[in-house]
Design a protein around this nucleic acid. Structure first.
Length: 585
RNA sequence: GCCAAUGUGGCUCAGGGGUAGAGCAAUUCCCUCGUAAAGAAUUGGUCGCGGGUUCGAUUCCCGCCAUUGGCUCCA
């Protein structure tokens, strides 16, 4: 999909189209005030104050109509340079523009005139409104001024613009197709999970097919972790409020936790994360420096009271399972262990064929004293240690201020799903803070008690979110090892006893090899059964008739490919078993 | 939580002030068939929930709940 921001021509065109939209809005709502109208990856938007008027579908259609009308006039767009004082005078009735201008550096300010409309803008722009005629307003919503929920809500309208009508058409088609990849749609079609009002919003339930995938993911990552010396534990989904007061999570996140339950004079909460539980496991017995690193891992159930507006199938719910681990190391082990975690992340991505990801070194914002644990020295040490390690490993990353956890900096690995915003899949966080709060110690080689450093890390992130991502990436055509049903056997005739016996022989052979196989014995037409198997996204669709039974061969189609392949019986079984075992295609 | 839209049988959707309709699915019958839907019959819904207006509400109004698209947030 195109990136409007990075393509220079599209960027200019869309920026100009944002102005065209503002002009049309001004015609329809003369009192409209305008905040900013930037180009983003997916097109453009403009944030506008319409005096409390909330736009609906009809209003959007009317704005589009007015835009077409203005575009048709072919009015020219002129660039004009003015001084800051002139700008302040020109926009003195518009508090939003005044806010923008007053925050600009002194010197020349540019603005653009098009007919009866003038807007402050750095530019560049196309030179005529008619060039913006191939546009579409995509969606609209409320958006807080300056992105702050404390501020008033502005009307934001998103759109896209292309040089030609054909390109616009093509783009809109792609947007439609992206909806087909939505994991919620795929999940419903494949019977993977459900959400139910009576259970509660944001609390998806995995159905047999979905749980099969879930278990495969769990086995996969646990297997990898075991080889790397991780020790798996199981801990309860509740903890006392005091536990979270000790960790500091209570102060930072109590609003986003399910409220406390009072039982026999004690307060408990559903746990939102597992760090405190794992800290207490470390504290369960004394440790020598010789024991480190200690890698406590768990596929852990967590509950967070996410805002209702953010819930999204299994990508973001109020219950999820983290592929979590806390690694207790001595300071001199940090680099090796971070490197080991990174290796694990990237080897996992390789197994899943994930190539399109972005690494972020998330740092604290020193000005945000409310969010972050206050200890400058600790932060400097942690951030520098993580940065150095990443540089040493040679990972490409961008640094982002204000994205750190309250207790420490982190490496986040983000991906872009088919629908919606970038999500974090994997994370590796460096924490000098919680071990001290929990007064964790180990005995060092000099006989002194020292405080360990903790790496918080998740590879698949949450299994739920990872599954959502994989479903969207593969459109539900999962690799064989993950597929709920791996092989479906379709007999051409169901009343042919020797054929049915041949099918049974194959099914037994596959079941003995732990392959998940289904047998469609209904007396339906072959085409009908194939269509159904296809829609269920079964990787191997085996068609057996008298011909195959006589020759002792297997005919199959792979993941809906048009071509049919025929191989020997044993060869087929070996092929599947090998594929599943290597977890690769 | 905020702004907007939506909510009709298991699924996808049409309809609309006089107590509902299609296709698919399901069930039964029939069919035994060679690479994406044979045919027939039957079953299935107090139109998200609660109020109000009305002789009468699934349809109009209000409130709530849920879903969807964004905004904010994501330890």
């Amino acid at each position: 999909m195109v990136n409007f921001k990075e393509d220079e021509q599209l960027n200019t065109l869309n920026h100009s189209c944002a102005h065209l939209m503002a002009q049309a809005v001004k015609h329809l709502y003369p009192d409209a005030k305008f905040w900013v109208g930037p180009v983003v990856d997916t097109g453009f938007y403009y944030d506008m104050d319409l005096g409390g008027k909330a736009l609906n579908e009809e209003d959007i259609a009317a704005i589009e109509k007015e835009m077409k009308k203005v575009a048709k006039t072919g009015v020219k767009i002129y660039r004009r340079e003015i001084s800051k004082d002139e700008a302040l005078e020109m926009f003195k009735d518009d508090p939003y523009k005044m806010d923008l201008i007053s925050n600009m550096e002194d010197g020349t300010i540019t603005c653009y005139d098009q007919g009866d409309f003038t807007d402050l803008c750095r530019g560049p722009h196309v030179d005529n409104v008619k060039l913006c005629r191939n546009f579409k307003l995509i969606k609209h919503s409320g958006a807080y001024w300056k992105g702050d929920a404390e501020n008033q809500v502005l009307e934001r309208v998103y759109g896209v613009c292309f040089p030609t009508a054909e390109e616009l058409e093509e783009h809109l088609k792609l947007l439609e197709e992206a909806k087909e990849r939505d994991h919620r749609k795929i999940g419903k079609e494949m019977g993977l999970f459900m959400v139910d009002d009576l259970i509660g919003r944001g609390l998806p339930m995995f159905l047999p097919n979905g749980y099969t995938i879930w278990q495969e993911l769990e086995d996969y990552i646990k297997g990898k972790e075991r080889k790397l010396g991780y020790q798996h534990v199981m801990t309860p989904c509740v903890g006392t409020v005091d536990l979270y007061k000790t960790s500091g999570h209570w102060d930072h996140y109590k609003e986003n936790m399910f409220p406390a339950m009072e039982v026999e004079g004690e307060s408990f909460v559903l746990r939102p994360m597992n760090c405190p539980h794992h800290m207490r496991i470390f504290a369960n017995k004394p440790h020598s420096y010789k024991d480190l690193p200690i890698r406590i891992a768990e596929i852990a159930h967590d509950f967070r009271f996410e805002s209702s507006g953010t819930l999204k199938g299994i990508e973001r719910g109020r219950h999820f399972c983290q592929n979590d681990s806390h690694i207790f190391v001595s300071p001199d082990q940090i680099k090796d262990e971070v490197k080991s975690v990174c290796d694990l992340i990237f080897s996992t991505y390789e197994d899943f064929g994930i190539t399109d990801y972005r690494c972020v070194l998330s740092l604290r914002d020193p000005a945000d004293t409310k969010k972050y644990h206050q200890d400058d020295e600790m932060w400097d040490t942690a951030e520098q240690a993580l940065r150095e390690t990443l540089n040493e490993i040679g990972i490409e990353y961008t640094e982002e201020i204000g994205e750190a956890a309250f207790y420490g900096p982190k490496l986040d690995v983000n991906v872009k799903p088919a629908i919606g915003n970038e999500i974090t899949l994997s994370t590796c966080q460096l924490d000098f803070c919680l071990p001290a709060k929990f007064e964790l110690t180990y005995i060092d080689s000099d006989g002194e008690k020292k405080t360990p450093v903790v790496l918080h890390r998740a590879i698949l992130g949450s299994l739920d979110r990872f599954m959502a991502y994989i479903l969207e990436e593969t459109k539900g055509n999962l690799p064989t090892w993950l597929a709920p049903t791996q092989v479906k056997v379709l007999p051409v005739k169901t009343d042919d006893e020797s054929l049915m016996a041949y099918c049974d022989k194959l099914i037994t052979a596959l079941e003995d090899a732990d392959v998940r196989v289904a047998f469609d014995t209904r007396s339906e037409k072959l085409g009908y059964k194939m269509r159904e198997a296809q829609m269920q996204k079964v990787p191997y669709m085996v068609v057996l008739g008298a011909k195959e039974a006589e020759e002792g061969v297997i005919s199959f189609r792979l993941h809906g490919e048009q071509k049919t392949t025929t191989v020997g019986f044993d060869e087929f079984v070996d092929m599947i078993v090998t594929e599943i075992k290597t977890k690769k295609r």
